[in-house]
Amino acid sequence: MADPILDIRGLSRSFGALKATDDVSLDLRAGEIHALIGPNGAGKSTLIKQISGEIAPDAGEVRLRGRSLAGVDAAGRARLGMARSFQVSSVAPEFTVLQNVVLSAQGASGASFRFFRPVMRDAGLLGTAHDCIAQAGLSGREAVPAAELAHGERRKLEIAMALALRPALFLLDEPMAGMGTEGATALGDLLDGLRHRAPILLVEHDMDAVFRLSDRVSVLVYGRVVATGTPDEIRADPEVQRVYLGEEA
């Protein structure tokens, strides 16, 4: 098998006596959706933040395409293609959809210290942005300020911004949170197609979506990975049923 795109080994992080991340190892392979599930407080967001570079681990390492990311900050990791969405949508609210995605394309280009030419007439950035907006299903909404978007549309905008980063992988932190059934299904279909662009590490509470979309699922409990496997294996795992799926299974 080819080397994984993202390889996490022995990652640990404590906050005082609390082990938020306890010797976590997992990987993300080309073309897959790898879901990360776990009860509230299991340390999913803390883990995502260590992968994205927002907080530093106490021990262990994150490798992207075999390269260690130790000492690379969040901006540096984004430039290496780590495209992240946030649990609570995070966009520039006063910018239009188009400006937000152009900003992302500009970030990927690595050239923000250009002072003369108008950015909104930069054919290269605009071309990328329009492509990504179309792929995220937001065509026709380019001129709408992000603050005026419906919740589901803002999620799509985050996907479009992630696409504009020329992603090596997607780190999606609860992309379906707060969406209705219909919206979640539509977004699921979108993610389903994205895995072939770049693999997705998906943190999600919507179990239907997780089991429908994922190639593999890892279960995080108290900062530890208690199981990793295909959706069927996870569903059948007695330990997982006990600690997590509970009455649902």
Binding site: E54, D73, R84, F86, S90, E94
Partner: peptide
């Protein structure tokens, strides 16, 4: 508007 987002696009 959003420094966190700016970091996340690599700036």
């Amino acid at each position: 508007q959003n420094r966190q987002r700016l970091m996340a696009v690599g700036i």
